[in-house]
Amino acid sequence: MTSLPTETAKKLGLVIDLDTCVGCHACVVACKGWNTQGYGAPLSDQDPYGESPSGTFLNRVHSFEVKPAEAPAQLVHFPKSCLHCDDAPCVTVCPTGASYKRAEDGIVLVNEDACIGCGLCAWACPYGAREMDQAEGVMKKCTLCVDRIYNENLPEVDREPACVRTCPSGARHFGDFADETSNVSKLVAERGGFDLMPELGTKPVNKYLPPRPKDQAVEEFDILAPLLEPVATDAGGFLGWLDKALERI
């Protein structure tokens, strides 16, 4: 059903730390690797070794420059995948019921057997989280690795989304936002986690942590600096003569 649940028992999602992400794209590769062999249709590529390669990805890393008014610019790597919104506009527009949000854990999924590939959900998503697979003609999106997180055949340490499991800098965290004592809830509270495009009212579950402010170079940072200033500003004597002579040449 494409009606949204009024409340979900759990709110599973990700916290993405923009302070620690180094932009290595390992999460992109891990996501593609896991999701091309598990849930639903594989993530196809078109012309992968040709002149104009493109393909389906559920997670992508953008890089932005942020230039504060009075400080040097800073580089922010920005991973982006489905935010599993509480008020997911992609779900309600679906004409077939293929898109749905699970009442038990809040994950937004696509039932690919019911998807007609009209693409309206991708239009309704502000975040570019949904991509139509060009080989299968069905909509693909982040499943929060639903086939890992509950998978008892995997060692417990692997029961988290592939992107989180693989991140070498610990920039991605997985947990339940409905539980105030969970790791993700604490991170959001401590670090001021925020929503993307809050003005659209989608109420994303995933939160982003802001980059910490960079140290600023203070003007007088060297206690010896005053001692190293030029001694004479208008030189006289032999050096003064030499200076003038050299300038005349």
């Binding site: 923009l18 992109v28 104009s52 390669p53 493109s54 393909g55 389906t56 990805f57 992508r60 890393v61 953008h62 890089s63 932005f64 420059e65 942020v66 230039k67 504060p68 008014a69 400080a71 610019a73 800073q74 580089l75 922010v76 920005f78 982006k80 693409g119 991708a122 239009w123 502000p126 570019g128 991509e131 139509m132 060009q134 925020f194 929503d195 993307l196 495009m197 809050p198 003005e199 982003y208 802001p210 980059p211």
Partner: peptide, 29 residues
């Protein structure tokens, strides 16, 4: 600024796109 949530820190500019080629999002939207 609102799309990335970084607008409060300063002027936001894309430095590098996530992929060198095109994709469904760019073609469609």
């Amino acid at each position: 600024g609102t799309a990335t949530g970084l607008g409060g820190l300063g002027d936001v500019r894309m430095l590098e796109p996530p992929h060198t080629g095109t994709n469904y999002l760019l073609k469609e939207m």
